[in-house]
Design a protein around this nucleic acid. Sequence first.
RNA 1: GUCCCCAUCGUCUAGCCCGGUCCAGGACACCGCCCUUUCACGGCGGCGACGGGGGUUCAAAUCCCCCUGGGGACGCCA
Length: 471
Amino acid sequence: MSDVRVRIAPSPTGDPHVGFAFTALFNFLYARSNGGKLIFRLEDTDRARLRQDSERRLLEGLHWLGIDCDEGPDQGGMHAPYRQSERLPLYRDSIATLLQGRHAYRCFCSAARLEALRATQRQQKQTPRYDRHCRTLSPDAVARQERQGVPSVVRLKMPLAGTTVFHDELRGELSVANSQLDDAVLLKSDGYPVYHLASVVDDQAMQISHVIRAEEWLSSTPKHVVLYEALGFTPPRFLHLPILRNRDHSKISKRKNPVALRLLAQLGILPAALVNYLALIGGSIEHDHEVCDRDTMIKSFAPQRLNLGGPVFDMQKLLWLNQQYIQNMDEDAFVQHLREEVLNDTKLRRIYPLLRTRLENFAQFFAKAAFFFDGVQDYQAQLETLQPRDELPQVLADLCARLENLTVWTQANIKAQLQAVQQENGFKTKELYLPLRVLVTGSKDSPELLPVLELLGRELVTYRLRCFLNR
RNA sequence: GUCCCCAUCGUCUAGCCCGGUCCAGGACACCGCCCUUUCACGGCGGCGACGGGGGUUCAAAUCCCCCUGGGGACGCCA
């Protein structure tokens, strides 16, 4: 039995995407190849950005990928609860300890003041940083403000001099001058902890041995190390994973790639192929065995092999791998997959009302319903015959953004957005609906638009719009 | 702007730690040929990279420094 304990710790703010899958997979492989434990922890300390069914989707995403955790909110464990919103007392205790040990202080600065401060600093080309206005407040002054009910946060009192050194499993010894570090907020005025505090406290409490997370956290690791020490903890080992990129090398985004796991599934990607692909670009498998099953992956897993340059997410190679997997399926698996994932009853029943009046025979089903199944539509020729208005791209970009932010994906809500966009831009109904129909279904001859949009789902609709906008 | 990380074909990478076997190997994509009534699969071949400059050394993709380039962080978001 090993004492390796790693965690997957997403925040429930949206749909699980490939970056999440990449980090999750690496943690999974790390745990399984070392006989360790994998913990799922929900970092739900931001109630403003919290999305209702996000937790469920994250769990579904992991399940789809075949990444099973040993402890988590759905299955429990000896360090329950696994939702940070249910662990508030723990963070308050830590705050009390820090305050008592003078490692932290109360700050009464308003959001407006901080914003103004940052604006000036930016303007003067200085590093935006808290000016430590409240760091030297006298106990009396603090007590007075508290009595008056002025909202406050708790900040970490960073050492002013010296250097913080830590070790990254892939990069070796890293260090940063303490003078570069900010007095970060640890506890928000709503009583919820900020990521830095919550993750440090929980990683300690849950006896996490290795913090494996994306590289965007690398620069805040010194802060965490100071926190660990202020709390009297020994820091875990750190391993920072490169960030996936778009073709232009920017941080991967849904704007430029089909990143949502649900979308990838809709595009017909097998989870095993995705996992294989992520392991491949993550250096997790031996390069001369590109097609690699999970057991081999676990057996030959060698984190040191990981390339530190952020890999470009290459849909073409993913599709090639997917093809390999389909090719290697036996007859039963092939038929079963088609029946359960592609042409399942639920889907057919949803298509039924849209298509039943449009078929002269059942052979036409595949031609007329193809756009429900295929990823990319060949719309070019059809679109040209419509002679769309020049403003169409901007209008559709606007629409796309609106659809993305729609809280609930229903026909009524979609219609409201369509109408708003149409009115604001002075488009006739036909001028908007017809091109939209062609872009989304590949044809003018397709079922009623709103039900189609609803059925296709947000991911696929916005993906197809993006394909047009990025063309 | 400040700090941090990174750097081999268009993309993913092998090689780098322990310098010579590398005029740099594989995969995707692309191009050509073969197979094939077609297309795909498969087979064969082609195109294509050590970012630049200084060192160290008999010898550098490999070690060191500088530059350049790319990325990330700088929120009462994670």
